[in-house]
Nucleic acid binder design. Sequence first.
DNA 1: TCTATGCAAATTCAA
DNA 2: ATTGAATTTGCATAG
Length: 389
Amino acid sequence: MINQPMDPKNTDQKTLCSMHKMNHHSSLLNINNRNYSTDCKDEQSSMFQLSTLKFNDIETIMIHPKSDDDNNVDDSKPETKYCSSYEHPLNSIKQPSRNIYQNNEISNFRSPIFEIGINSCGIPDPFISSNLKCSNNDNNPPGKSSDLNLFMSDHQNQCQCDMSSSVWDKWSFLSSINSYHANSDCTITTTETIQPVGKSDALAEFVDMFKEKRIQLGITQAEVGRALGALNLSGFGCLSQSTICRFESLSLSHKNMLALKPVLEIWLQQMEGGLWVNQEHHLQESHNCFNRTPTDSTDSFRNFSDSSTNPPVFPPFTPLKDSVENQRRKRTCIMGREKYILESFFNATNCRPTSDQMNQLALRLNMPKSVIRVWFCNQRQKHKRLSKL
DNA sequence: TCTATGCAAATTCAA
DNA sequence: ATTGAATTTGCATAG
């Protein structure tokens, strides 16, 4: 990715962007419903901050469409698009997690009104979290960038997003602010992009469509989850049936939904097209990219290898460079003796063991120290949570 | 056999 | 490097 100055011809073009982190150096970018992958390994010139993927001050990025075969890019005439946007606070919306989208409505979600900060250039900047201030009443917590209810003032115009609208509409609203920010001459409009709550939500619509087509294709949630690993998208491996199920029932967090959507979209496109293109063409030795046992893999991919029941779709194992790092560590099941010993230690001795104590426990229980450490972290969290009830 | 869900392990982020 | 808090996600199992 190369930093480019803003294309003046593009300044009044309204562009809706969303960005989905894939890993520390690449992301999926959705611009006007088209997906692009971005890659920036050079941290110094990175358009993204590693942890938050906020755009830097240049505000302009060049994107090489992923649909081009990476090996056959026409360097003389790369298709590029300019996009000016930020990752905005919506990406870190604080919200009750699961089930909030039931009935396609956001409930209990009235947060205070916020004033958008003015940045050093005098431009209203909703993305400077430290400048966000709660301005309505004292019953609300101090404002953070993760809060939703935005009130923007540029001393001339005022625009307010209707907070009873859905988060997706708010996203559009903020995109308008982005446009404004990118070009101070443009007019901010809110009503244009804000749509009624409900079925018109693009995400909800996609989810409905996704589920319908998955069922049409006769593919189970578990199979979808496993197939995602073979998509070879950096930062994404397989997902569990649970996660696909939750995606289909809109019961993941909004941020999570947004992150998963483009990946599932790509999967669906490939399934519908009935073709599989390994975009990266890794030539290295084929290896089991899912780190499964042979038994596992045979079973996992029976439907993809059995062309008598399903059309051949894509090979069960795609050579995948970073497959191992895409793989979430297997969930450890701690029970019986191990659980008893850990709980005894936690309750009776120390809920905050030293490194040495954790080493000893790890040795005694024959478990990795990291698992022990995480267990204590989670246990402390659990206790804190329970004590609040 | 497939999907939904409770619990909690693992990951991420910021301090 | 470590931690707390928040969040994502998988396992086990219920439906």
